[in-house]
Design a protein around this nucleic acid. Structure first.
Length: 233
DNA sequence: AAGAAGCACAACCGCAGGATT
DNA sequence: GAATCCTGCGGTTGTGCTTCT
């Protein structure tokens, strides 16, 4: 592994933080706020890079952090949010007050993934392994969107679907951010298919849950009436 | 008792994107 | 527009503790 450029400028400490370092950082930020992170270590008297200080503050020293194990409700919410947002840990963390993205990411990789696998659920797609095999052998050849593909979708240019229902489109697009005004539902006679005209890909209803996050309302889980299933017409 | 393996958590890294010069 | 700096994100690795053999 290489070292970040800012750490080349001077001999900076790496590795675990000592209680003394924590105290210095905590005292400094409590008194002055963090301001520009790159100046924090110098002003706080620390031999660390600003990036390291920022991480330590966010993941460990922040006063509003909730310490201790995750509750079952928190785990359930993480699974639910992951099915919608994919590996967008910071956005998932935003829905769990007092929890950090790093903490959630660690929990996911070390614990939740394993639990889902034990239940026969693919942690990437949130589908039972058996169902996936069935789907892959079937006629459906729609592109499956996964969280790893998000960047390319986000950059895709909008295309308006010619056969969408206006009413459905309005209802549907109301769910999304105003900047993405070209999402539509395109009912299919054989299977209910969602056509996301923002990127031109066809989604099956359950695949839709893996859509890019700016398409998704982060508060869906709080509003039963906005559940996407309601729009599979 | 000692070493190996597994696990959870902390921290680092590269990269992307926005702001500034 | 190019270069540079800064911040935030997600993937990965390191570290220390616990359990297993």
């Amino acid at each position: 592994m290489g070292r970040h450029s800012c750490c080349f400028k001077q001999k900076l400490r790496k590795g675990l933080w000592s209680p003394e370092e924590d105290e210095k950082l905590l005292n400094y930020i409590t008194k002055h706020g963090h301001g520009c992170w790159s100046t924090v270590p110098k002003l706080a008297g620390l031999q660390r890079c600003g990036k390291s200080c920022r991480l330590r503050w966010i993941n460990y020293l922040r006063p509003d952090l909730k310490r201790g194990p995750f509750s079952q409700q928190e785990e359930d919410l993480i699974i639910e949010l992951h099915s919608v947002l994919g590996n967008r840990w910071s956005q998932i963390a935003a829905q769990l007050p007092g929890r950090t993205d790093n903490e959630i990411k660690n929990l996911w990789n070390s614990c939740i993934k394993k639990k889902l696998k034990q239940k026969g659920i693919d942690p990437n797609t949130h589908k039972p392994y058996l169902d996936q095999e069935t789907n892959n052998n079937g006629k459906n050849n729609s592109l499956i969107i996964t969280s790893n593909d998000q960047k390319s979708h986000e950059k895709a240019s909008p295309i308006q679907s010619p056969d969408m229902s206006t009413t459905t489109f309005e209802a549907f697009s109301n769910l999304f951010s105003p900047s993405l005004n070209s999402c539509a539902v395109a009912p299919s006679s054989t299977s209910q298919v969602v056509h996301n005209t923002n990127n031109g890909f066809l989604w099956q209803p359950d695949e839709f849950l893996s859509a890019p996050s700016e398409l998704m309302r982060s508060d869906w889980h709080r509003h039963p009436t906005l559940q996407p299933e309601l729009f599979w017409i």
